[in-house]
Nucleic acid binder design. Structure first.
Lengths: 348, 348
DNA sequence: AGCAGAGATTTGAACGATCAAATTCCTGTA
DNA sequence: TACAGGAATTTGATCGTTCAAATCTCTGCT
């Protein structure tokens, strides 16, 4: 109940000096083993923990990452950020890093918030998600000399060495998904994605194209198999319905998101397989196969790049996603999908 | 690129002392207006921001809340924590508070993590979610004299004055949902919820019962209209199917969660209305009505109780949820109306 | 024995802020 | 003019830690 023990209390109790206690914690190698153990025992006994703020003040390093948390916008895939945050926090703890959250209403507001956090010397690095082409936030951070890592390519500046980014190879993932369907006996695999212009959306569509071209589908034949729409259930359902009318003999559908996958699944009523993207728990609930982003791997790369240790600016990591295959029952509409939860298999 | 300005730099530039600058920031009232404005101008010019760690070291107060972030477990309703976190962070910023995350694999692990955070004087208060009956975490925090607020009643100790909690009145919300259906011409409203024993699940079921009894349905007639199952799509679908067999003339369904609501929705195939709980974006996507927890309101109460300012231990807040009514289209989201915001009651 | 030199440990100072006490400034009154 | 007394401001000390430099300890070699 009284004061928390300080480094001095430990020092006195162990019969050594402040600095030796500090060394035991920060550079155990330079302390004689006997002393080290003695100090450690006292630390244990007193339950001493270094005062984080004092340490930060002295070292001018906060061991803290800031991540923006977004309001739930997307219909179904919105939980990706949630999973990423979890993975990030979990791994950060092991490295002795903290994760703090911030919110912002728009890029300008975000710049303001970032400035405040930076000014308070409260944050070592920023983790930015949902990056877009010509993102004003990264420009500002670069100029301010403030370290940051983006989860998502800095579209348009992917090869700029001043950026450090980690992203998931959506193209590869969708190609994997398409090939999975093609390998399973289906030949005419449709794609439902977003309108051209978004970096990740275009990449995912490209993955589908690659796989289809490799399988011999090209030209107008290929074009007819793809549709684009907004990322919500209603738009997706309408788009897939149009697709079915246009190409009645369609074999399977690959979607750019789980939201669109669920929409497609509802429309095709379980008659043909659908593969989604993000591997959200909703896709899992419906028994849909989906491309898994390996957020845990992404998180560990982000931490590595954000860490003050090795600071090799200009490092880019493209994580290969994996496909989680689920067996969909072949019954009616959603009923099939809701039948007992199927086993999962994981493709590398 | 140089050093960040300190309170001293500001003082020199403004021709006053450190302390006056400090006062301008912390107790502006005691500084003469002319001086105050002069100092403020300099702060603005130099872009000075107090060093958060230095301040925390001196004041022995961290202005930080810790919240556990869970892995996505629930099929669909898992995003509630996400929305809560967003609301909490947003409002915390306005109060100058920070939100840090932590993870834990089990209660023991969590206790360990909490101890580490507390030891580092890194956290002022904890926000606990997903509280269960006889929660070991709260017991430990109480014993350690560490401030905390729970989002969710400390089941079994709701009236214990040592606890501060904020919860949503699930009973009231489900009653609202049931009455909404009853008022819309439906008479036999079924309920699909969780097995008895979970605090919040029992409350929600009670809300349905209250509304039904008030409308004249009682006894075996009432019992036949309720089912219980695990919180996932498959179980929910099975339970609702059984319910339909047992009571073919059922009019509408109220569910204890959006997961179960989606399951019910799939089974009844749009023939009768379904109302969920949590108002997740998934429910919104499907055009389902749902009980909204007003997480933003919850967050503001949590912050108020966690704040070091007024520290009236033993304050309990029960937030009245609202019903978001949606008209179900075929996949389309047709927002109809949102019930008027009801008054909230705050227990002392 | 004397000493170099590496290894281990200690000491003084500093990080940037606020608290508590001391000081200066100002105004009104005797 | 002098002075009391409150308001405004300044000064010295401190929070707990780590850095940088100084000191002490020990071993091995001449």
């Amino acid at each position: 109940m009284g004061q928390l023990p300080t480094v001095n209390d430990v020092a006195v109790a162990a019969g050594v000096s402040r600095q030796t206690v500090s060394n035991v914690l920060n550079s155990p190698g330079i302390v004689r083993p006997a002393t080290r153990e003695r100090v450690r025992a006292v630390i244990e006994t007193l339950g001493y923990r270094p005062h984080a703020s004092a340490r930060r003040l002295r070292t001018r390093r906060s061991a803290t990452l800031a991540v923006r948390i977004d309001p739930m916008v997307n219909g179904i895939s919105g939980s990706v950020l949630d999973s990423f945050l979890h993975a990030l926090t979990q791994q950060a703890e092991r490295l002795g890093l903290r994760v703090v959250l911030y919110t912002a209403t728009d890029p300008d507001d975000e710049t303001r918030v970032i400035r405040r956090l930076v000014g308070g010397s409260d944050v070592d690095a920023f983790v930015l998600t949902s990056t877009v082409r010509g993102d004003p936030r990264t420009a500002w951070l670069l100029e301010a000399g403030q370290p940051f890592v983006t989860f998502g390519r800095p579209w348009g500046s992917e090869h700029d060495d001043r950026y450090r980014w980690v992203d998931v190879d959506g193209r590869w993932g969708v190609r994997l998904a398409t090939e999975h369907l093609l390998g399973g006996g289906t030949a005419r695999v449709g794609f439902v994605g977003w309108p051209e212009g978004s970096g990740s959306g275009d990449e995912r569509r490209a993955g589908w194209r690659e796989a289809m071209v490799a399988a011999g589908t090209t030209g107008d034949d290929l074009e007819a198999l793809g549709v684009a729409c907004a990322d919500d259930l209603a738009a997706g359902a309408a788009a897939v319905r149009a697709l079915l009318r246009r190409v009645p003999d369609i074999d399977g559908v690959v979607a750019a998101s789980d939201t669109l996958a669920v929409a497609a699944h509802a429309v095709v009523a379980g008659r043909i397989p659908v593969v989604g993207f993000d591997n959200t728990s909703v896709a899992a609930s419906f028994g849909l196969s989906s491309v898994d982003q390996r957020l845990s791997t992404v998180a560990s790369h982000v931490l590595r790049l954000a860490g003050p240790a090795g600071t090799p600016a200009g490092t880019h990591v493209l994580v290969k996603p994996r496909l989680v295959v689920r067996a969909v029952g072949e019954g009616a509409v959603l009923r099939a999908a809701i039948s007992p939860r199927p086993a999962e298999t994981i493709r590398p």
